[in-house]
Design a protein around this nucleic acid. Structure first.
Length: 467
RNA sequence: GGCGGGGUAGCCAAGUGGUAAGGCCGGGCUCUGCAAAAGCCCCAUGCGACGGUUCGAUUCCGUCCCCCGCCUCCA
């Protein structure tokens, strides 16, 4: 079997992915999900699309991937949003959860095995249990303000992922307001004591009413659903510190085992060359793009086509390029289908096409993989131009494309049926063309276009496509 | 200041110690009544700057410049 190698943030090295001993071919994958206080933006989706590509390629290579993605449905922002809207927290987050799943479907993301929610009583119970263990072991303490904090000084491994040296950190103003009762500035909250602004939001715990800190949430859900040591944990680079560092500290202090074997992080996304920000007016949700007429797969292509560890400059030009490239792939696919006809061979094409998957084995080198795809496209078209291709050749190539689609998920949307109205016009136009009534033919073509369909004349007659 | 990711054609972007994949744009051609679509072909003596090592560097070493991100709850 081919070896999939990935860049591990923890070691900074390219490492072959292997399941844990005794796990067969199963890999556990935990991916940090959205905080449901608003619609996820394309920067969020860049991460999710990258994770989807990872999962799909691992599956293509024969692994069973058990993926979990959490939903953060309680934090400062969700509480603030619910309060501002004058509704209960769950009521406030529900539409954003639903929207997230819709968007994920639009981008063709494979569903995870589970989407645990932070407010799920089962999860809260687990978080409280973990905090209890940390307290018993001296890794946590309750401060004057009632909140429970993780004692970073008690965990020598703190900083190994982000390679931070706490002594050397610039002390930011951002923490100033939050420092009150902590033993050390860097200690982070495990359990946040209830404050009046929390309103009805809160759970009882041995340390009083309150709510979980963000980091413990992921730690509890990841280990609760996937076990003490999970194989792969993904997220955006901005999560490396402090979020993932904190997760390591919590999990490895509760149990003695390593928390994660392979850490993978994708770089940020920029829009038109600058950081995406609401204030800069370059902030996009998927919905914004759909409204502008772009499709889910076009956005998926734009997000997937740049290597995950490089910054992705998301532009309208890039989307347009995605549209054109997809159009070429579609036309090629259609031509293959026509050439293949009713041929049903299960033969596969030349070994050269395996280069597509081999490229992805190398830390998901999508650029090289796409290069193989487009080189294959050009080569096959050349052969078909020469008339040198048999239906079996074409069918073989389509068999390969099925595997490619399993990883890229860029196949065309289901074909929409041509309306009767349009069919009638096409028939009328065919008659006009046989009679060489070009003027009439052109008029009918305009009518068809007005209905949103495109006509092209080929040597085999008219071809209709959605405009 | 610390840590990390980058600087390759108009734009996006792989890659290699021996003279630069792919996509978009652009140009040419083919098909065609015309058009559109599509197909084929062409398109970087150059890989941030300057030194060094080498028969040879974009690729290795050194110095420097620039961009982006993180530095305590933003993917």
């Amino acid at each position: 079997m081919a070896t999939v190698q990935i860049h591990n943030t923890l070691t900074k090295e390219l490492e072959p992915i292997e399941p844990k001993h005794g796990e067969g071919k199963t890999l556990s994958l935990y991916t940090c999900g959205p905080t449901v206080y608003a619609h996820a933006h394309i920067g969020n989706f860049r991460a999710y699309v990258f994770e989807d590509l990872l999962q799909r390629h691992l599956q293509e290579r024969g692994f069973m991937v058990r993926r979990v993605m959490n939903l953060t449905d309680v934090d400062d922002k969700t509480i603030r949003g619910a309060h501002a809207a004058g509704i209960a927290l769950a009521e406030f987050t529900r539409p954003f959860k639903e929207a997230f799943f819709e968007d994920a479907k639009t981008l063709r993301l494979l569903p995870a095995e589970a989407y645990p929610e932070a407010t799920d009583p089962k999860q809260i119970t687990r978080m409280i249990a973990m905090i209890g263990t940390l307290m018993e072991k001296g890794h946590a303490y309750q401060a004057e303000d009632g909140s429970v904090y993780f004692r970073i000084a008690s965990f020598p491994g703190y900083g190994k992922l982000a390679r931070v040296d706490l002594e050397n950190q610039r002390s930011g103003q951002r923490v100033a307001s939050d420092e009150y009762d902590k033993e050390a500035v860097a200690d982070f909250a495990l359990w946040k004591a209830w404050v009046p602004e929390d309103g009805a939001v809160g759970w009882e715990s041995p340390w009083g009413r309150g709510r979980p800190g963000w980091h413990i949430e992921c730690s509890a859900m990841a280990t609760g659903l996937l076990g003490e040591t999970i194989d792969i944990h993904c997220g955006g680079v901005d999560n490396i510190f402090p979020h993932h560092e904190a997760e390591i500290a919590q999990c490895e202090c509760v149990g003695a085992k390593p928390f994660v074997r392979y850490w993978m992080h994708c770089a940020h996304l920029m829009v038109e060359g600058s950081k995406m920000a609401k204030s800069a007016g370059n902030f996009f949700t998927l919905r914004d793009l759909l409204t502008q007429g772009w499709t889910g797969r076009e956005v998926r292509y734009a997000l997937i086509s740049v290597h995950y560890r490089g910054a992705l400059n998301f532009t309208l030009d890039g989307l347009a390029a995605a549209r054109t490239a997809l159009g070429r792939l579609d036309a090629w696919r259609e031509r293959l289908v026509e050439t293949a006809g009713s041929e049903t061979t299960s033969e596969t094409p030349a070994p050269a096409t395996e280069g597509f998957f081999a490229a992805l084995d190398d830390d998901l080198n999508i650029s090289s993989a796409l290069a193989v795809l487009f080189e294959t496209l050009r080569e096959t078209n050349r052969r078909m131009d020469e008339g040198a291709w048999t239906p079996a050749h074409a069918r073989g190539m389509l068999n390969w494309l099925v595997r490619v689609d399993g990883v890229l998920a860029l196949e065309p949307d289901a074909i929409t049926t041509i309306p009767y109205e349009v069919e009638e016009l096409v028939t009328a136009r065919a008659a006009a063309r046989t009679a060489k009534e070009w003027k009439k033919s052109d008029e009918i073509r305009d009518q068809i276009e007005a209905l949103g369909w495109l006509v092209k004349d080929t040597k085999d007659g008219q071809k209709i496509t959605k405009g």
